[in-house]
Structure formats: structure tokens, C-alpha cells
Computed example of a mutant assay.
Amino acid sequence: MERIRERVIQIYGNLVSLLRKCIFCILSVGPIPNHIAFIMDGNRRFTKKCKLMKGAGHKVGFSALMSILKYCYEFGVRYVTVYAFSIENFKRSPEEVQSLIDLMLEKIEEILKE
């Protein structure tokens, strides 16, 4: 059973890699922008909709952002702006605010290491 699972994961990884290469080929035909901005929004709604543990949506959102940032780097996008925390977020509970800030610091450190 474990062998089958590993094989499925390998096949999935190969398909994702092929799809990524196809997307890069298509997008590289046109001009690549110098600057892209992302607005991180909807992570709590995602958590509620999928009935996940509190804060899980933020982790999923940051993981998606990390993937996108790698793509931007590979495409040669020189500048990326990320809006990840607004003044409105400070109206949340102190525990949630601290959790978000800790998560941001953790992910920023990961980016700097890579």
C-alpha cells in the first residue's frame, strides 16, 4: 500500500512539473512585468468554509504566497509587493494578531534563507 502511495505522489509531482513548464512556456511569450502586487485576503473565510482549525487558512495562504514568490523569481519579476496585514487586522484579538505577526516573521525568515 505504501508503495502505491509513493508512486501516486511521484506521478502527481511529475504532472505538476510538466504543467508548470507548460505554463512558463506560454507566459514567457509575452512581456514579464517588473512589479507585481498581491493582496492577502480571505484566509479566515477559507478556514471557516473548509472547517479547519483556527489559523490554518493563514498558513495555507502563506504557503501559496511562497510558491507564487518562487514563480515570480523564476520569471524574473524584479519587484513584488505583498499586502498581508491591514490596520483593520489590529481590531482582532491580541492572540490572533500576535499569531499572524509570528507567522509573517517565520515566512519572511524562510524567504531570506532561500
Rank of each mutant, 00 (worst) to 15 (best):
V8T: 03
E88V: 02
P31V: 13
A84P: 00
K113D: 03
L52E: 02
V29D: 04
S99N: 12
P31Q: 14
A64R: 14
I87P: 00
D102N: 15
N43H: 09
K113Y: 00
E96C: 06
V82Y: 14
R20H: 11
E109V: 01
K70H: 08
I4H: 15
N34E: 14
L19N: 15
V82P: 04
F85K: 06
A56W: 01
I39A: 15
P33A: 09
R92S: 08
I87E: 07
N14Q: 14
K59C: 04
Y12V: 05
Y83C: 10
E6C: 01
V97S: 03
Y79D: 06
L19I: 12
F38P: 04
S63P: 02
T47G: 01
Y79M: 07
Q10A: 10
K70V: 05
R3I: 07
G57Y: 09
A37D: 08
V29I: 09
E88H: 05
F38M: 06
M40H: 09
I39N: 13
I68R: 15
E106M: 11
K91H: 10
K113R: 09
N34S: 13
N89E: 08
Y83D: 03
Y83R: 03
N34Y: 02
Y79V: 04
F90K: 06
E88A: 15
Q10G: 08
H35G: 00
N43W: 05
K21G: 05
K51S: 12
R92E: 04
V97A: 01
I26D: 09
V77M: 00
E95C: 00
Y83E: 02
H58R: 07
D102A: 12
R3M: 09
C72D: 08
V8L: 07
C22L: 14
K51M: 11
C25N: 15
I23P: 03
N34I: 01
K70Q: 10
M1P: 02
G42Q: 00
R45I: 02
K54E: 09
L15F: 13
L105Y: 06
F62H: 10
L112Q: 10
E114A: 12
R45H: 03
N43Q: 07
A64G: 13
Q10L: 11
M1E: 03
G55E: 03
N14P: 00
S93K: 05
G42E: 02
N14A: 05
C22R: 12
M53Y: 04
V80D: 02
F90A: 04
V82M: 07
Q98P: 01
K70F: 02
G61R: 05
L15V: 09
I68V: 13
S63H: 10
N43D: 04
K48H: 15
Y83W: 14
Y79Q: 06
K51F: 11
R44Y: 10
S93D: 05
G13L: 05
P33W: 14
C25G: 13
F85S: 04
S63A: 13
F38E: 07
G42N: 02
